[in-house]
Design a protein around this nucleic acid. Sequence first.
DNA 1: TCATCTGCCACCTTTGAATGGC
DNA 2: AGCCATTCAAAGGTGGCAGATG
Length: 452
Amino acid sequence: MNNISNNLSAICQCKDSSRTVRDETEISDLEVRVSLQGRELWEQFRGIRTEMLITKTGRRMFPCCKVTVTGLNPRGMYVFMMDMVPFDENKYKWSTDHWEVSGMAEPHIPNRFFIHPDSPSLGKRWMQYPVSFHKLKLTNSTLNSNGLVVLHSMQKYQPRLHIVQSPDPHNPPLGGYLCFTLPQAAFIAVTAYQNSEITKLKIDNNPFAKGFRDNGLNRKRPVESDDEADINISRSSSVDSHGAAGHRAHDIMFLSVAPNPLISAFMNQGATAVHYLSTLGFRSLPAQSSGLVVHHTFPQADYQGQRCPAPHLSPIYSHTSGHQGQRHPQQADFDCPLPLPPKVSRMNIPESLEMSPSHSLSGCHRPLNDILNRNYGSAVHSGRPQGKLLQAHYDSRTGLGVDRELRQPQLDWLLFSVTEHNQHGLLGNGFLGEGTGNCFTLSQHFNNLRCK
DNA sequence: TCATCTGCCACCTTTGAATGGC
DNA sequence: AGCCATTCAAAGGTGGCAGATG
């Protein structure tokens, strides 16, 4: 706990130094709470040791990481990102009917972030429905540059959620950065399923694997009604689509609050920025099997991740300024799952929920995360972004959508900052890594909000 | 020889365009 | 003309499995 206290004091110092006259709520001032959805399903998998298939071309997670978020500033703009961090330092092997340690894990590959396709969006929109990362893909190929999360086979990982406050062009130092790990969603990466129980669970619950069910056609048995067995998958949005819904796990660990890594990168000069960013969780930090690693660091503070006593898994951890890390009792209104997105016609799905080419992003026909992850680097070489800015598509009735017009200064500032810093070689190593383009994927993400 | 990885397959869901009704 | 629901085909996700690899 001392570590936490020390870190929190560092946070306060940092926050104080960046405080400005603008009366805007910084993310680190908010009591943000995150909760993993699909608790029962995750518990079933965890009970038999979750395995996630990784392939060269990338494989989606099942169950997927779907979280509910509360406590954000409804009018604040946030970017949601997810990556994977080692759960422990072991490598595993399957031995007949159980997993056992088979040695030391290989060095973790510098993180590649999956940026939620709806990023950036208003806090109101993030809190309205569960946020699903079902499009996140895992791979064992380090050669890909398509935004896949690279993992080592036979090693255990846990997802980590980052909530980054979008920068304010008028006040760059503002903008916090929150980091949550999801130990309940820890899994062993495999190239082929080892435990047949896992396979069975996946087949029984994943709609894509319906064909392998006992009553599937390929099983050469009479086809029965699947209605009761199937989980309810709405053809809905990137906010919420895959996976069983309606359950809430109280198992997300609040990890840290830190300055917005993007902003910090831009505001810190020289190698300090690289070092600073690389210690902000944008580089691998070995997690402890029974503890938490606090990733937050500050230029004037200790750079190393610090190990903290493992909290109980059940409560929700939230934080407020001055109360970071404080354990809060579960609140009644937090017991209720957020509503699922309405089942509307695909023609009616708001642009922010489903990146349809027929909507505002004409000319941007791919999911944003795909765009940004595939086009990494182009922003660097092209200088300041050019092109026509998209018009705002904010649904005043639902509150969904993103007012892109308002973000123009933000985008310009952000992109310019990335470009300028990279031209000076500030972000060329470590943080970005070859072919990863984490930082630039985000900038490219913004960049692709514009029509070319 | 063994553990692990790769590529292909059939089956299934999701997605988006086309179509037609109101 | 515009909105909406339905239909259909293409795209893509799924685990199984045989063979390849180290």
